[in-house]
């Protein structure tokens, strides 16, 4: 057998593949498609978005205009009747609590700094959930079990256990409906996603991506 001449490659095919690679090189080097759109400006996060404070500040002691209740109510007979008729002092207080409109459903008749239980005994401010429990038994049960309201601290009893949040940290006793909140900012749409979305203009936005 003679020496084999190595097979040759047709010029056009060689040219095409070398040329193809060169084109690719030019394509990548000139960055023809351009870079991705730059990120949007996103303002610095406000610390209040992640603030764990409750919606309402819980008072530590019963005062009115800085004075303890006892400075005006101590020793006096319970005031009777509709406060709105007498009212000059507490007219700021707006009662929007369903049919529960009477001050003494909650406040104690003889000790105005305390609250009133079924049997007329006093409930201290620190145990105010027992007052709510008089009329909201199922919610109170759920709160005791951790299903209503909030707990913080530790889920692990061995580490100290949970600390419940009192009812009046979320509900104003005089006007207890949970007030609307201002939502923290919506998620920013990635500029690329936005470009894709506007290309499909008309398509309903939705889904969770």
């Amino acid at each position: 057998m003679g020496a084999e001449t190595p097979p040759k490659i047709p010029l056009w095919a060689a040219g095409a593949s070398v040329g193809g690679f060169m084109l690719l090189a030019v394509f990548f080097a000139t960055n023809l498609l351009g870079n991705a759109p730059p990120n949007d400006e996103i303002p610095k996060l406000s610390p209040e978005y992640a603030d764990t404070a409750t919606v309402r500040k819980v008072r530590k002691e019963m005062t009115f205009d800085g004075a303890p209740c006892s400075s005006c109510h101590e020793g006096t007979e319970p005031l009777q009747g509709d406060p709105k008729e007498k009212g000059v002092f507490h007219e700021k207080i707006e009662i929007k609590h369903g049919r529960n409109q009477h001050c003494f459903n909650c406040h104690h008749r003889k000790q105005p700094a305390d609250f009133s239980n079924f049997d007329g005994s006093a409930i201290k401010l620190a145990d105010v959930q027992l007052l709510c429990a008089k009329c909201h038994g199922t919610t109170f049960r759920d709160w005791n079990n951790g299903a209503h309201g909030r707990r913080s601290g530790h889920w692990d009893v061995a580490k100290g256990g949970p600390k419940p949040t009192v009812c009046i940290a979320c509900h104003n006793p005089h006007w207890p409906i949970f007030k609307p909140l201002k939502a923290a900012p919506a998620p920013h749409v990635n500029p690329r996603t936005r470009a894709r979305k506007s290309a499909h203009a008309g398509a309903e936005h939705g889904g969770h991506e």
């Binding site: 097979p7 040759k8 490659i9 047709p10 060689a14 070398v18 040329g19 690679f21 030019v26």
Partner: peptide
Amino acid sequence: PVEDGTGISRRAFLAAAATAAVAATAA
């Protein structure tokens, strides 16, 4: 592969193609 001598050798082709491919990859 053509045997009549009009094409370029495989060696030359591979060298050229490889150079171009390296350029593309580098880019």
